[in-house]
């Protein structure tokens, strides 16, 4: 029997194309960013290994809690005092994991967790209101701005939220078993703002 070849598949792939993207509206647009490369990185941020990781990534890890750094399609999100989520373009995770492992020289750990979550991008002038419907974080721009991230809950699903720009645009990383539920919930929560414009 031939070996089964694993195929990466978005947890929303079974939804029709039209149902996976909602970009026709300026107030709120939603789309999935499937199959992003996700690496869990554990290391002491004050160590020499962190300097080598900076060279491997091309930018430094965030120095403050709940902040994100990034450049050219890659980003690093603070998850804990010694824990980060490195996000890269689809397919780039294996090579990046190798170069990070080399940079760590056993002074930390890098784990490919790409299959665990998918990302949903929500943007537009009312995106903040849609998220606020189901999230207890204070998302007011006075408190939560582009370049910040947080782990929290959205409509009871566990999420990692990353504000990527000032539209405002957000990336919501959700565990794949909750992805369809959260997508449908977001579509429903966004409906009232779509109707209004």
């Amino acid at each position: 029997m031939a070996d089964a070849v694993p195929v990466a598949r978005s947890p929303l792939a079974h939804l029709p194309e039209a149902a996976r993207e909602m970009r026709d509206d300026l107030a709120v647009s939603l789309r999935e960013r499937p199959l992003l490369g996700l690496l869990n990185l554990r290391l002491d941020a004050a160590s020499e290994a962190a300097q080598r990781v900076k060279a491997a990534l091309g930018f430094g890890l965030p120095g403050e809690p709940n902040r994100a750094t990034g450049e050219g399609g890659r980003s690093a999100l603070w998850l804990g005092p010694d824990e980060y989520l490195v996000v890269t373009e689809p397919g780039g995770e294996a090579a990046l994991a190798r170069s990070l492992a080399e940079a760590l020289q056993d002074r930390g750990a890098v784990t490919d967790v790409s299959d665990g979550r998918t990302a949903i991008e929500i943007a537009g002038s009312r995106a903040r209101d849609v998220l606020a419907t189901g999230c207890s974080l204070d998302l007011h721009p006075r408190v939560f701005r582009a370049g910040q991230c947080a782990q929290s809950g959205l409509a009871k699903a566990r999420i990692i939220l990353h504000q990527i720009d000032d539209r405002p645009g957000y990336r919501v990383f959700v565990e794949r078993s909750h992805a369809e539920y959260l997508w449908l919930w977001l579509m429903d929560a966004a409906a009232e703002y779509r109707a209004a414009t």
Binding site: P65, N66, G80, P81, S136, L137, A150, Q151, S152, G153
Partner: peptide, 11 residues
């Protein structure tokens, strides 16, 4: 101490 004020349900 790391993340600032969050609702009780997260803890």
């Amino acid at each position: 101490p790391w993340c600032g004020p969050r609702e009780e349900g997260e803890f």
